[in-house]
Simulated assay, not measured.
Amino acid sequence: MFKLMSQLSLTGLLLLPAMLLQANPIRVVTEYRGFYQLQNNDGSLGGYATEVVQALFAITGDTPLFEINSWGRSFHEASSNNNVLIYSLSLNPERAELFDCVAELNKEQLFFWALKGNIKQPLNVLDDLRHYRIAVSIASNPDQYLTGQGFTRLFRTSTPEYALSMLYKNRVDMIISVEKPINNQVEQLGYDVSQLSKVFQLEELNHPLCIAFNRNSDAALRERYRQAFASLQQNGTLAQIRKRWQLDHH
């Protein structure tokens, strides 16, 4: 009997590390951004992307430790520290070398926006935009791309809301955003949505919006979240969340 109990105890001890690996606190870094990451009335973090992240954690059993930073800070934390989850990350080719996308939240269509009547000349190619003042979030996908293209009149802001304020105060000529988040942000800031106009779209800026870990993160951890996302897709949970946020299925 004692031998059997010893064997059972040993088996339990052997299983314990595996169980602990399946239930870890995970740092989660993000920013407030349109309808993806919203501050709820009670101060908690909500939004479409946040709901997907929370659904993933419900499956993995891990505990999310949310941190709301500027995008530049969140990007630095996730790229510099292993096993830190970041969302919502636009996965451009440069970032794909650093990050593993474990869940695709959306396919973004980014537009350049201006106030109606402020852009007099037709904008046909990217070079037509070089002499305009463009506000971009620090370390954002548009910031990285336009910097790489040699744009020099970029005004880097810590938040999308600050960029919007600069646009409405005529301190910049253009900002870059997805349509749904920008409408939400304009209304929250009390500006007139009808003054906004899409003036240009650049396909090179359209990338999958992801939940990701850096590529040096634990491979088993990354795979666990990839499988959790596959479960959300298969059991209909993702479709329900997308419908609630009025997003088309993909």
Score class of each variant (00 low, 15 high):
Arg156Gly: 03
Met166Gly: 02
Ala139His: 13
Asn206Asp: 15
Tyr162Thr: 01
Phe66Ile: 11
Tyr145Lys: 06
Leu205Trp: 08
Tyr168Asp: 00
Arg156Leu: 07
Glu104Met: 12
Gln234Asp: 15
Asp62Gly: 09
Thr30Asn: 06
Arg73Tyr: 14
Pro122Asp: 13
Asn82Ala: 14
Ser158Trp: 06
Lys120Arg: 10
Ser90Ile: 08
Pro25Leu: 06
Ile138Pro: 06
Val199Arg: 15
Asp143Lys: 02
Ser140His: 03
Ile26Val: 00
Arg224Phe: 09
Lys107Tyr: 12
Ser88Leu: 09
Gln227Asp: 14
Met5Thr: 04
Ser165Gly: 01
Glu94Asn: 10
Ser140Thr: 05
Leu129Cys: 12
Tyr168Trp: 00
Asn183Asp: 04
Val172Tyr: 02
Asp62Arg: 00
Ala212Trp: 04
Gly47Trp: 01
Gly190Glu: 00
Asp173Met: 03
Ser74Gln: 09
Asn92Tyr: 12
Lys107Gln: 11
Gly47Glu: 10
Gln185Asp: 08
Tyr168Cys: 00
His76Gln: 15
Ser9His: 00
Pro181Ala: 04
Asp218His: 08
Phe151Thr: 05
Leu38Trp: 07
Leu20Gly: 09
His250Met: 12
Phe229Lys: 08
Leu98Ile: 15
Ile176Tyr: 01
Asn124Arg: 09
Asp192Glu: 12
Thr60Leu: 11
Arg226Asn: 14
Leu105Asn: 03
Gly12Ser: 02
Cys210Gln: 07
Leu16Arg: 01
